[in-house]
Amino acid sequence: MLQHPENPTNTFSNIVEATKPWLRGRTISGVLILVGHLAFAYHFVLMLLKFGRADGVGPTLLAKPESAAEASS
């Protein structure tokens, strides 16, 4: 929209400046994703190092299913 023809006075540097808050937002969301990936990588390494559960009580689920028959990962 900033580059719309009816906006001829907008300089390129104006447009670049205007994107800055959004780019900051992206970095913040990127940090969130990085945290997720680190958690995932840590979890994965734990599995590789054989810290995984082998107690036979079923899969690791995010919540308790209504019936045991449904249990599946």
Partner: peptide, 16 residues
Amino acid sequence: YSESTNVNQIHESILR
């Protein structure tokens, strides 16, 4: 499946 000898539990994920 490494040190575990309990066939019952090691195949749990495959059996279910």
